[in-house]
């Protein structure tokens, strides 16, 4: 099991990735992903290159359908790439999905413990770790509830705890707070920022909410639509803790929104 996954025919890309490995926790080199074959094929990603520094928080931003989820699936190893290569320093990576996708036949603790169990953690240790993770996402009193008894925001926190239980240094998040109300989302931003710091995670966070991206990211990577390519990378030099409604966040968000609008408008003509 080599940490590098390469589409078979591209040797040069592999070399490039190997060279880049030193600088990034996740390095994507000329990643191409096509769904289907022949005239009906959809090119979701077309030559995406990206290097995520260890310990950084990178937000991927793009219009709907531009290939953000595809990109995360590729990094997580859920899907095979068509061409290019992806190098992860640490595999497997943890991932959190758009919908919480908790298992309804397990309780809240059960959902967290399953991640530990697959890794071969013993029963007592599992229980201890799960309690600790529940404390981390502030759901201590809800250990024995079923997922359907929780609100959407709480479910996403359980999903976060489950992802953290994987104990991977890289965490992929696919629009995890997309379906939540603004108040809950703001709070979860604070919580996520805290956890990211405490655990020194590398986070690759997908969103189509520009302010959310600026609020959270060290870097915001703007993707183009159909085919997905990296349009621009913004370094967010703002001091933390940030607030989503602060002026500097709004200012940078406005700039990125303009770029995003321009990109979307390009498809109108």
């Amino acid at each position: 099991m080599s940490p590098a996954r390469t589409a078979p025919p591209h040797g040069t890309a592999e070399r490039a990735a190997d060279e880049a490995q030193g600088s990034g926790a996740v390095v994507l080199t000329d990643v191409v992903k096509r769904y289907g074959r022949g005239p009906g094929a959809v090119t979701a990603l077309d030559g995406v290159s990206l290097s995520v520094r260890p310990g950084s928080f990178v937000c991927l931003l793009g219009a709907s359908g531009c290939g953000k989820s595809t990109l995360l699936s590729l990094v997580a190893g859920l899907d095979d790439l068509t061409a290019g290569s992806i190098t992860n320093v640490d595999r497997p990576v943890a991932m959190m999905f758009q919908e919480s996708a908790l298992f309804p036949w397990l309780t809240v603790t059960g959902n967290i413990e399953i991640a530990l169990r697959v890794r071969g953690v013993g029963r007592a240790e599992r229980r201890r770790k799960a309690a600790e993770l529940l404390e981390t996402v502030r759901l201590t009193g809800f250990a024995h509830k079923r997922p359907h008894e929780l609100s959407g925001g709480m479910r996403q926190r359980v999903a976060l705890a489950r992802a953290l239980a994987q104990d991977a240094s890289v965490l992929l998040m696919d629009e995890p707070f997309g379906a939540l109300d603004a108040m809950t989302r703001d709070l979860l931003h604070d919580e996520l920022e805290r956890i990211w710091r405490e655990r020194e995670l590398t986070v690759l966070f997908v969103t189509h909410n520009v302010r959310e991206a600026v609020r959270l990211g060290d870097q915001v990577v703007l993707l183009s639509s159909r085919p997905g390519r990296v349009l621009n990378t913004y370094d967010v030099g703002l001091e933390r803790p940030r607030r989503i409604d602060s002026a500097p966040v709004a200012e940078l968000a406005a700039e990125i929104t303009d770029a995003l609008r321009e990109e979307v408008a390009r498809h109108a003509g």
Partner: peptide
């Protein structure tokens, strides 16, 4: 979605 979660968890 559940199968993908399983795969991500290493099952």
């Amino acid at each position: 979605a559940w199968k993908r979660v399983g795969a991500v968890l290493g099952m």
